[in-house]
Write a protein that binds this DNA or RNA. Structure first.
Lengths: 173, 173
DNA sequence: GATAATTGTTATGGACCATATCAAATATCG
DNA sequence: CGATATTTGATATGGTCCATAACAATTATC
């Protein structure tokens, strides 16, 4: 096509040249039309996910836990005696990237690596007492501030339906 | 707490030492328990989003369009005569990061920057003929391969309900 | 007409993700 | 048994995405 680089006579029938620079000498900023974008599940899904994570971080500000860190603590608590590879892989985290994450949690005394006596290659992961306490507080914050807000926005039944459909996508897509 | 670094006598009442190294001399890999994680909306949301994007990329492999690029083309088509700042901001893309993205699309002759005659600072964005053709094909691929698969997984009614709830989260959360 | 604001751009750094590679330890098999 | 292959945690490295500061050109504002 090689569009001429200077919008000469607006040879394109040009949507509307009625809007000058700002917006025809006054008026609102004239919001864009999302169009089919608002029907694209991927687009809406991504935006919703960003909002949820953002809110999660706000709720957890006092504990300084990211969603990923929270998920690690939850999984280690639920599965004591597992090593790094097992925990990382079920969370979809690659082993190399899990190292720095654990370094962080361990430096904050939230969890600990224990050299296994059965297989001296592997590190068994456990929560420290502080880690258990922090996780308990985190759970309460998530329940009362985060998930509660979602319930109030969607309603209990809808929230559960949403969770079910997302699980289906996550597992069977 | 200062957990001893060598799991000596397994002083922790140690979940279960029944599983040796591999798994008690045989048996399945013994999958981990997700526990409360599968009830965390943020966690499931993120995983679903990754799956959807992954599938989107597969469907678009022949056109080499990422979700972000597709959204740009859709938005430019729907809103002709807008500049970079307007397109980028409604997509939540920061202007600096939008430059390389446009460089890419422009180098593939899918869209073009046209210096505005009204405000010679701004670049008006338009789709090239090739861009329009590619976008049309992309829409068909998304409809027939991507969204169709979601409909078949969730059902038409559920898919629409899902979209509605996600929009609510994205906009009102 | 001097000053402030806007647009596209560059440079840069951080967070996250992926691959190759390594040493130590273990498993496997001749 | 012993040689070879595999596994585990770790390091190094590169890519992508996201965020901020700064800049020149242009326009708005006073």
């Amino acid at each position: 096509m090689t569009v001429s680089k200077t919008a000469e006579k607006s040879s394109e029938k040009s949507g509307d040249a009625t809007r000058g620079r700002k917006d025809a000498a006054e008026g609102l900023p004239e919001a864009l039309q999302l169009g089919e974008l608002s029907e694209q599940l991927g687009y809406v899904l991504k935006r919703a996910q960003l909002k949820v994570f953002e809110n999660f971080l706000r709720c957890m500000a006092s504990l300084q836990l990211t969603p990923a860190q929270f998920s690690v603590l939850l999984l280690v608590e639920k599965n004591p005696g597992r090593n790094q590879t097992e925990i990382a892989s079920t969370l979809g985290i690659l082993r190399p990237n899990f190292v720095a994450m654990l370094d962080n949690l361990e430096s904050r005394d939230l969890c600990a690596r224990i050299r296994s006596t059965n297989d001296r290659r592997s590190h068994i992961l456990v929560l420290t007492d502080k880690g258990k306490a922090v996780l308990a507080r985190a759970k309460k914050l998530v329940a009362t501030k985060h998930e509660a807000r979602l319930n109030e926005l969607l309603g209990q039944a809808n929230r559960e339906a949403l969770l079910g459909m997302l699980s289906k996508i996550a597992n069977e897509f």
